[in-house]
C-alpha cells in the first residue's frame, strides 16, 4: 500500500468549495501549516475550519491570508480569538467575526474532542457534563444571530448532561513528526494534541509528515495513529515558527 503524494497540491486536489476541514494543532504546536498554505494557493472558498484549540492563532499568517482571500465561511473552535482585546481589535479575523462575514462557533475544548471522537467511532451524539450552568446548556454559541441551535439536556443520577452531536469533517489536515507510506504516524511531544482524534474523525484524512520513513522503522508498539485512518501522506520540510501567540 502506498499513500504518498509527492506534490502537496495533488494531495488536496479534491478539497472543494464548501468543504469542512478539520485543522489539527493546539495554538502553535502540531499545526499542518504546509497543508494550510496549499489550501491558500488552491483558493478554495466557503470553507469551514473545524479546530480544537486555536491552531489558527498559531498559524496567524495563514489565517490572515485566508481572511484576506475571503476563503472562510465559518470557524469552529474553543479558543479562536486573541486573549488581548487590544490585539484582537487589530486582527483581521476578529474584525470579520465582528462584521458577521465569518461565523465563529465556540465550544468547550473537551466537548470538541468528544464531538470528533463520536464521529470517529460511529456514535451520533454524546451526553456531557461540561457547560451545565453556563449559556451552552441552552444553546450553541455563535456570533451570527439566528444561527444558535437549542441544546437538549437529560438528567442521569440526579445530574444534568448536555447532548452534543458528532462532528464529522469532510477532510482532516494532520501534522506528524514521522510517517510511513501506509500512513502509520508518530507525533512529537505536545504536537500530538488534536491530531489523532481528527485523523480518525474525517472522511478523508491528509497528513503532512516531517520524516517519511520505510515500513517497520516506526516501532509497532509506538505508532500513535494507525495507517487505516490516513488516506494521503505528504512529506514536508520541518519549518521554524514562533512559538508564542501573545
Amino acid at each position: 500500500m502506498d499513500k504518498v503524494y509527492q506534490k502537496i497540491e495533488d494531495a488536496i486536489a479534491d478539497v472543494n468549495d464548501g468543504a469542512t476541514v478539520a485543522v489539527a494543532g493546539f495554538f502553535a504546536c502540531g499545526v499542518p501549516r504546509l497543508l494550510l498554505k496549499a489550501l491558500i494557493n488552491k483558493g478554495t472558498k466557503n470553507l469551514t475550519l473545524a479546530c480544537g484549540c486555536g491552531p489558527m492563532l498559531g498559524a496567524a499568517d495563514e489565517l490572515k491570508q485566508l481572511v484576506k482571500n475571503k476563503q472562510l465561511k465559518k470557524v469552529i473552535d474553543s479558543y479562536g480569538l486573541y486573549r488581548s482585546a487590544t490585539k484582537g481589535r487589530e486582527d483581521s479575523f476578529e474584525q470579520a467575526v465582528r462584521d458577521g462575514e465569518i461565523e465563529l462557533e465556540v465550544y468547550p475544548m473537551g466537548t470538541l474532542a468528544e464531538k470528533y471522537r463520536a464521529a470517529a467511532a460511529g456514535v451520533p451524539a454524546v451526553y456531557l457534563p461540561t457547560g451545565v450552568g453556563s449559556i451552552i446548556e441552552h444553546s450553541t454559541i455563535t456570533n451570527i444571530s439566528g444561527k444558535s441551535i437549542p441544546k437538549e439536556t437529560r438528567v442521569f443520577n440526579g445530574r444534568t448532561y448536555i447532548l452534543e452531536y458528532a462532528l464529522k469533517p469532510d477532510f482532516a489536515f494532520i501534522h506528524a513528526h514521522t510517517g510511513d507510506r501506509e500512513g502509520n504516524l508518530k507525533y512529537s511531544k505536545t504536537a500530538r494534541n488534536f491530531n489523532p482524534v481528527m485523523a480518525a474523525a474525517a472522511k478523508v484524512t491528509i497528513a503532512e509528515v516531517e520524516n517519511l520513513v520505510e515500513l517497520g522503522i516506526i516501532d509497532s508498539d509506538s505508532v500513535h495513529t494507525p495507517g487505516i485512518y490516513i488516506k494521503r501522506i505528504v512529506p514536508v520540510p520541518r519549518i521554524d515558527f514562533r512559538v508564542s501567540i501573545d
Partner: peptide, 17 residues
C-alpha cells in the same frame, strides 16, 4: 466589554466539571 457574543472557553468549563 469586548463587544462580542463569542469568546475563548478553551478547557475552562471541562476543568471546572
Amino acid at each position: 466589554s469586548r463587544g462580542l457574543d463569542v469568546g475563548n472557553i478553551g478547557g475552562s468549563m471541562d476543568l471546572c466539571v
